[in-house]
Simulated assay, not measured.
Amino acid sequence: METLNKSQIEAALAARLPSYRITCTLHADGTLSAMLSSPETDHFAITGIVRAHYNGEQAIARLANEILREMVLSRQGLKNSRLHTPPDHSDSVKGLDR
Score class of each variant (00 low, 15 high):
A15P: 00
L26Q: 08
T25P: 02
S74K: 08
S33I: 11
A45E: 15
Y20H: 06
N80P: 02
R75A: 06
L32W: 10
P39N: 13
T25G: 12
D97C: 05
A52M: 04
P18C: 04
P39I: 09
I60V: 02
L17A: 09
G95K: 12
R82D: 01
D97Y: 10
A15T: 10
N5V: 10
P18M: 01
L73G: 07
K79D: 14
R62P: 02
L13T: 01
S7C: 00
L73F: 00
G30Y: 13
C24Q: 08
I67Q: 08
S92N: 15
V50D: 14
E70M: 12
P86E: 06
E10N: 00
A34Y: 09
D88M: 08
T25K: 10
T85P: 10
A28W: 14
H84S: 03
L36G: 15
A64C: 10
A28M: 14
I67G: 06
F44D: 07
A34C: 15
F44I: 05
M71D: 03
T31L: 05
V93Q: 09
S7T: 13
Q76R: 14
D88K: 06
H43A: 12
D29W: 08
V72H: 10
Y20L: 01
T41M: 04
R62W: 10
V93A: 13
D91V: 13
